Computed example of a mutant assay.
Amino acid sequence: MNPAGESDGASMTLFEAVGGEPTFRRLVAEFYVGVASDPLLRPMYPEEDLGPAADRMTLFLMQYWGGPNTYSAQRGHPRLRMRHAPFRIGAAERDAWLRNMRRAVDQLDLEPQIASTLWDYLERAAYFMVNAEDDPAEPA
């Protein structure tokens, strides 16, 4: 896979390679099962129902990996850091997000190269979203 999510030599996007929308819906649904019971992440989602947040994430990931541009058509440019700015995201929140996402990715049982490409992006994105330093007075 190249950085654009296309298979090297085959012009198939990662979106197509994983099976399209159903796979991304499964990934995000599984991720939000974890978020719903995560004491660190759940308070970041003000909606009583996590459905709207899950829909936004699904549309974003599908578009990022070569699927339809529904996310941008509905919400404009992703502006991920700006949209997450109201929330304190430190190392603990990042790690909780990654823990839940790792479990979700593993549930998909993807080919290793595809899973690695997807995970590399998700991990970079999680580190990019950190917007708060850990308080050195608090134990790690």
Rank of each mutant, 00 (worst) to 15 (best):
G51C: 09
L40R: 12
R75Q: 08
S72C: 14
M101Y: 07
D134H: 14
L41C: 02
A91P: 09
D95E: 12
R83H: 14
A36T: 11
T58W: 06
M44N: 13
V28T: 11
A126R: 00
N131V: 10
Q63S: 08
R103D: 01
P78K: 04
G66Q: 11
D134R: 13
A54N: 04
Y45Q: 03
M129C: 04
A92G: 07
G51H: 14
A54L: 01
A91L: 13
A54T: 07
N131Q: 12
L118T: 00
P112H: 04
E138C: 13
E30S: 12
A132Q: 10
S116A: 15
W119L: 12
W119E: 02
E133D: 15
M57F: 13
L27K: 07
P39C: 06
R94K: 14
L59K: 14
G66E: 13
A53I: 06
L40H: 10
G67I: 08
V105M: 10
M57K: 06
D134E: 12
Y45F: 15
R75L: 07
D49K: 15
F128E: 10
Y127I: 02
A54W: 00
G90F: 01
L61Y: 05
L80R: 07
D120F: 04
R94G: 01
A96K: 05
L110G: 00
L59C: 01
E47S: 14
G34P: 05
A85D: 11
P52L: 13
R25L: 11
F128K: 01
S116W: 04
A29T: 13
R56T: 06
G67K: 08
E111Q: 15
S37W: 09
W119I: 01
A137N: 14
D120S: 14
A36Q: 13
R99F: 02
G67P: 04
F87S: 00
I89D: 03
Y32S: 04
M101G: 00
R94Q: 09
H77C: 06
G67H: 05
E30D: 15
A92F: 02
A29W: 05
R42M: 10
E133W: 07
M62V: 01
A36C: 09
H77D: 13
F31L: 03
A96T: 08
T58H: 02
L80A: 15
L40N: 07
P136Q: 13
R102I: 06
R26A: 14
W65H: 04
W65M: 03
L108G: 13
A36S: 15
F128D: 11
Y32H: 09
F31Q: 02
F128Q: 07
G67Y: 03
L110E: 04
R88A: 11
M57I: 09
